[in-house]
């Protein structure tokens, strides 16, 4: 008797618990799962907006049947040089932005971790300001900073005696400019994550290191960095996901859906958007979406393998 009561109490608690997590699952179903299924479905059709309207008006399956093209969109995607160019650009911008960002963020976090630092709360708050600034505003300001004719960067270069750099019209400079935009927004955020991780490292480790006569550099190299492995992995994963979805920055920076006249900074999501909306090929846009998903899965597997290796090194 007493036991059944206990069980039902637990079951009831479970049900209440489900209620608590329900909002996430409802949200995920509506804005995650259903769109993913629908996108995959759409990728098998030669669909444009007009077809969509026709279907919505008539609900006639024949409308869809006529537009069904099997794997044509995927075949086209495989041989589409622009998709592969977009993939290359996306990874290039990601590499240029993430690697230096992690190094500088670590440096800033080390400075902030100094217990003798004055007004540390002020500095930490200051670091978050770029992150809460609107991306649109950031992109417009950076567009002006890297303007070819009247931009700040080229003006400074002029005084050093260097010719104007084509910050939008050439591939690497444009990747650099966009990477700077990303770094400016995310540097503070990443620094704070580093800072939190550094402050969580047990003080005993530092004390024993100093007893052993380790130099400042040796403490960083052999105590701090190994302790931050999981944090670094986390930041690389988050950075990769953000990097693969890079959209607003190149859109505003170039002012078009092409990522520059020569597609020099065309990213994957920008290419999806251009095809689905500007070129009105919803089906092909959906196929690009599936392509991006596959890329993300591959990258996630690589990330997983690296994380596992790091974790096993930790347990040594």
């Amino acid at each position: 008797m007493g036991r059944t009561k206990q069980v039902s109490a637990i079951a009831r608690q479970d049900r209440i618990g489900l209620l608590y997590v329900a909002p996430f699952f409802v949200h995920f179903l509506l804005f995650g799962a259903i769109p993913i299924v629908f996108t995959t479905f759409l990728a098998f059709f030669n669909a444009d907006m007009d077809l969509y309207y026709e279907f919505m008006d008539t609900f006639d399956p024949g409308v869809l049947g006529n537009a069904f093209i099997g794997f044509d969109n995927f075949r086209e995607l495989g041989s589409d040089p622009y998709f592969w160019l977009a993939l290359k650009n996306t990874f290039s911008i990601w590499a240029i932005s993430t690697i230096p960002q992690l190094i500088v963020a670590f440096g800033i976090a080390s400075l902030l971790a100094n217990p003798n630092l004055r007004a540390s709360v002020f500095w930490r708050t200051l670091l978050m300001v770029p992150n809460i600034t609107s991306v649109l505003a950031v992109a417009i300001v950076f567009q002006q900073i890297f303007d070819r004719d009247f931009g700040m960067v080229n003006t400074l270069l002029y005084y050093v005696g260097r010719g104007p750099v084509e910050w939008t019209n050439e591939t690497l400079p444009s990747h650099f400019a966009i990477a700077m935009m990303i770094d400016w927004r995310w540097l503070g955020y990443n620094s704070l994550i580093f800072l939190a991780a550094i402050l969580a490292i047990p003080r005993e480790l530092y004390e024993s290191a100093s007893l052993d006569g380790a130099s400042r550099w040796q403490v960083t190299r052999f105590v701090t960095i190994p302790q931050l492995r999981n944090t670094i992995t986390f930041m690389v994963v988050i950075g990769t996901i953000g990097g693969l979805g890079l959209f607003v920055e190149p859109l505003i920076y170039g002012g078009s859906y092409d990522g520059g006249a020569n597609n020099q900074f065309l990213t994957m999501t920008l290419y999806l958007y251009k095809n689905a909306f500007l070129n009105m090929r919803l089906g092909y846009g959906a196929a690009i979406g599936v392509g991006i998903t596959i890329v993300v899965i591959v990258v996630s597997i690589v990330n997983f393998l690296i994380t596992r290796r790091i974790a096993s090194e930790d347990s040594k």
């Binding site: 084509e166 019209n169 050439e170 078009s256 859906y257 092409d258 006249a261 020569n262 020099q264 500007l278």
Partner: peptide
């Protein structure tokens, strides 16, 4: 959009 980009490529030299 495509013609516009092509014309930009000519004058931008890319």
């Amino acid at each position: 959009n495509q013609y516009g980009a092509a014309l930009s490529r000519v004058s931008f030299g890319n």
